[in-house]
């Protein structure tokens, strides 16, 4: 079981995913990550996990994420002992489950681990030093982008209805990134398989979260996919551990 604390009403926390009302309406249960909440179970764990194996959509907006940008960003991040992808549009999984995605030569997106344990990427002193670091800037990615996960064997088959990129495992293997358009909006797609189960992270303008969620659910209908909670992802991780972890 997750060590994350249970939260009954995400609306009681100061930080709120754009989707928390939708999840509440469908009877989801939540766990707290920092001052936000993530939908932990949409139905039952076996139900969510079975859905996730085929095609699930999960709201990860409550997990932490940030960004660092600027010509000095690679050096600064390496100083902080982050392993960086060698080139843009690749991601590297850190030993603690944090994912570092390189969006360009000098722009990085950092996604917290799915367990919700890596709440703070940098301590306050780091941030203070960042202000004086040569040409390295923190980006408010925690709030600028939503973070959704499309998981399951049918994930790439569903996504090609909305996206012109070949997301098959041959052309788009684990840890590859595409900065593309999905359903007419800009989306960063990062492949991060959960063991043997394909998983794509979608990061889009946070104000478009509800739109993107609904479009994805609609596209998933023919695959009998649906929303799942974070617990299903934990189960997939535990049952089919990722080799890098």
């Amino acid at each position: 079981m997750s060590e994350l604390p249970v939260v009954q009403d995400p609306g009681s926390l100061p930080r709120r995913s754009p989707l928390y009302r939708l999840h509440l309406a469908t009877g989801a249960s939540f766990r707290q990550v920092e001052d936000n909440a993530v939908p932990y179970l949409m139905a039952s764990l076996p139900g969510d996990t079975a859905t996730a194996r085929q095609l699930g959509l999960v709201d990860l907006c409550g997990l932490t994420k940030t960004g660092v940008k600027g010509p000095g960003a690679p050096a600064w991040l390496q100083q902080k002992r982050f392993q960086l992808p060698a080139e843009p549009n690749l991601a590297v999984l850190q030993p603690n489950g944090v994912l570092v995605a390189r969006l360009s030569f000098d722009e990085f997106l950092i996604l917290g681990d799915l367990k919700g344990q890596s709440s703070a990427f940098f301590d306050p002193e780091d941030i203070r030093l960042l202000d004086s670091a040569p040409q390295a800037y923190l980006l408010p990615r925690g709030d600028s982008h939503c973070w959704l996960g499309v998981v399951g064997a049918q994930a790439s088959k569903m996504l090609v209805k909305l996206c012109a990129i070949d997301l098959g495992s041959e052309q788009f293997p684990d840890f590859v990134i595409a900065q593309t358009i999905i359903a007419d909006i800009s989306v960063i797609v990062i492949r991060h398989d959960l063991g043997l189960t394909p998983c794509f992270y979608l990061l889009a303008d946070i104000a478009s979260t509800e739109y993107l969620w609904e479009v994805l659910l609609d596209a998933m209908l023919e695959f009998v996919g649906g929303g799942v909670g974070l617990a299903a992802l934990h189960t997939l991780l535990e049952q089919e551990p990722v080799s890098a972890m």
Binding site: R16, P18, R21, A183, D184, I185, D205, A207, S208, T209, E210, Y211, V215, D218, A219
Partner: peptide, 14 residues
């Protein structure tokens, strides 16, 4: 095809 109507909502929308 499917008609997309991208929409943005602020966090206070509801």
């Amino acid at each position: 095809g499917r008609v997309f109507y991208p929409a943005k909502r602020s966090n206070m929308h509801y």
